[in-house]
């Protein structure tokens, strides 16, 4: 059974069909890429999956349960979390605090435990802090946990977003252009990290523009154009698909 299954999901804004009856599935332990030209509706699909938008029609199932009528909070609780195309960090909080906010949904101690610093607070806060440090070290930010998030370079900010998403204990992580703004060395390192995540059992959906990155890392690829799914398959199938080439290179000249 697929981990995530989207069945003919549609998103309509007024007269605009942003996503038109799109279906796809993601299996556990896969890295699946969602590609397509600007304005194809990729981020909209992410917003539909995470409950930011209420889908116009269709159905989304996660681990066999319908999630398309759930609130974003419930969806995070079930195990889906995401990053944002235009960074949305808590800029005036330290890096480690950003990641600790990610652990919020798994935090059991209540307001009064925190106020009175009960043993429950002591124990759990220490656990969560260690967990946050571990995540940050694994993503290569171990020496920057005390920096303000907004003071980090762009590439590092993207990493903090990913760390924050992992901290929610998600099973499925949606990464919206994680390599944007990174130099080749950084993005190479990021790819390695994403593969490691998969090997640890995470499942990943990726929106990415850099075709090099996509072809390199994806197990399977879905291609969106003008809100419609125009192709799907293995990376090399996609690379040779004339429809995809046309959608992508439509206006552009070959390099």
């Amino acid at each position: 059974m697929a981990l995530l299954q989207a069945k003919e999901i549609t998103m309509q804004f007024g007269g605009l069909l942003a996503v038109d009856s799109v279906s796809f599935h993601v299996d556990k332990g896969e890295i699946v890429s969602l590609i397509g030209p600007n304005g194809a509706g990729k981020t909209t699909v992410f917003n539909m999956l995470t409950g930011v938008y209420e889908i116009t029609s269709g159905a989304i199932e996660f681990e066999g349960k319908e999630i398309h009528r759930k609130t974003p909070q419930e969806i995070v609780d079930m195990g889906i979390s995401r990053t944002f195309q235009n960074l949305r960090l808590f800029g005036k909080m330290r890096v480690i605090e950003n990641v600790l906010v990610g652990t919020h949904i798994r935090t059991k101690y209540n307001f009064f435990d925190g106020l009175l610093r009960t043993p429950r607070y002591q124990k759990e806060e220490a656990e969560k802090t260690l967990k946050a440090i571990d995540i940050l070290e694994s993503i290569g930010l171990g020496d920057k946990i005390n920096e303000l998030a907004s003071n980090l370079p762009y590439g590092d900010q993207r990493k903090v977003e990913i760390a924050r998403a992992i901290a929610t204990d998600a099973k499925l992580i949606l990464l919206d252009e994680p390599a944007a703004g990174m130099n080749p060395a950084e993005s190479e390192e990021l790819l390695r990290f994403i593969r490691e995540l998969r090997d640890k059992g995470y499942t990943i959906i990726l929106i990415e523009h850099d075709m090099g990155v996509v072809m390199n890392i994806s197990d399977r690829i879905y291609v969106l154009d003008h809100g419609k799914m125009i192709a799907n398959g293995l990376p090399r199938e996609i690379a040779n698909n004339p429809q995809v080439i046309e959608a992508y290179l439509g206006g552009k000249r070959e390099k």
């Binding site: 974003p72 949305r88 909080m93 919020h104 925190g114 106020l115």
Partner: peptide
Amino acid sequence: TIKNSNAGRTLIAIKEDELAATMMGI
């Protein structure tokens, strides 16, 4: 103590970016 606990961090996260906070399950 409130500020340096889950509740305080959560409140500040909401101030910083309400949507991102929502997407963290807050």
